[in-house]
Nucleic acid binder design. Structure first.
Lengths: 231, 231
DNA sequence: ACCCGACGTTGCTCTGAAACAAACTCCTGA
DNA sequence: TCAGGAGTTTGTTTCAGAGCAACGTCGGGT
């Protein structure tokens, strides 16, 4: 395996306050791996052996019920840590991570976690900040799920993806990774049928444009209104 | 204010590996306060000035939508830390805490958090473990909310409360704090009407007994079946 | 002792969205 | 080049549960 370049980590929040030598040292313990779209990186409940940093691509973090239904808890974007069970003293992953697009991630054995946090205090700080944001996010999703009607939930979900990964195109904001109607229904606790209908309706109204696995938000403002967000 | 007794903290997970002198020191910085039922301890979004330990009573942790709907994210039982925003590098509380029953809590200024975690490593460890469990719990609630029908959700919610706070009586397991139908509907994203109907039906079937604000689960096993839990 | 407000029950109506069903379209790989 | 599967669309039916309404009841405060 080629030696990893230091510029990979420079500027990423978890490593922002480290110097070149420290980054070098961290990288020397890392394993880099590519995941095809749809690949599972680790399973809910599995022994947490490594923790990860997403370099490129997007992930879906998924939970499955005993009954087999699943929901997408959140998405991970490049530059974010994930699978950091050790930060919470867990020895097992609390959810499954799946590559939503072809992705590249670094990983380290959990045994290095204590060293990392001890040696590089900023690293721990940033990890916990990430966790805090994620906790807040999930609470918000939960609240929304419990109180909002389907159309609002779907609108928020699309907006969330657009905000997190959106790239500007001439037509609007495009979600950077493949999303199926089924995926959106798994984010919102509805059916793909309903999502399909909503997306068709929005397309007719000029709010979004979509092809298979691919969504462009052409009129974000109206989608925000649909999502019912308060100013 | 009377000097706090060391036995208050002895044996509680966050302090389990501390010696008498350390506990003394921690207590000397603590403020103890009583909260009447219904009192708000802190508000979502408020400046996180203190972190807390619940000594006695029960709390509801609540999130409110811009539209005014609210849902109960989780309950806190005696011995648990709460409002530990500093652990996640947050300077604001992510949810509101309300006394579900008359409660007593200790609290410390957030400025002491770094000292605490530095001086007493076990304290940090336990805090993060708590957070990890809570994150897992919320993810589970979210999944359930998105995939399960109302009856199952209500059954799980009642069971969760019974497990967390249940005290055995001659008739069954009694939830240790006051709960209204509205409260349960706020945990499950339904209406108090539906909860009332379900509880009445279950009572008729001999699964629960309930009076105002007061629920006894007389047949936990059948409730588990209703909740749809897998073995 | 009484009144008022909070809490609970129950009946009825109505609708949002799930469930069921059937095609259609695109893409992939043999 | 064609077959098959994955993803999408659209129509129709069905029903759980929200919404509305009205009443019953408990308990705490003056």
């Amino acid at each position: 395996m080629a030696k990893l370049d230091e510029s990979l980590l420079t500027g990423l929040p978890p490593f922002s306050m480290l110097n070149r030598a420290q980054i070098r040292e961290i990288l020397d313990h890392a394993v880099s791996r590519r995941y095809d779209e749809g690949t599972t990186i680790f399973h809910e409940g599995a022994e947490a052996e490594r923790f990860f940093l997403l370099l490129d691509g997007y992930l879906r973090v998924v939970r499955t019920t005993p009954g087999g239904d699943q929901i997408i808890v959140l998405h991970i974007s490049p530059g974010q840590l994930f699978g950091i069970a050790p930060a919470l003293q867990r020895d097992t992953y609390p959810a499954t991570s799946i590559a939503a697009a072809e992705s590249i991630a670094l990983s380290w054995p959990v045994s290095l976690w204590p060293d990392f946090t001890a040696k590089y205090p900023g690293f721990a700080t940033e990890s916990y900040k990430t966790l805090g944001q994620r906790l807040g996010q999930i609470q918000e999703t939960l609240t929304e799920m419990a109180t909002q009607a389907v159309e609002k939930r779907v609108a928020s979900a699309v907006l969330r993806m657009a905000n997190q990964s959106g790239i500007k195109t001439e037509n609007g904001i495009e979600i950077a990774f493949p999303v199926t109607r089924q995926n959106i229904s798994d984010m919102t606790g509805t059916t793909l049928h309903t999502v399909s209908r909503l997306l068709s309706a929005w397309q007719k109204d000029g709010i979004v444009e979509s092809t298979r696995k691919h969504i462009v938000v052409t009129d974000p403002h109206r989608l925000v209104i649909l999502s019912g967000a308060q100013d």
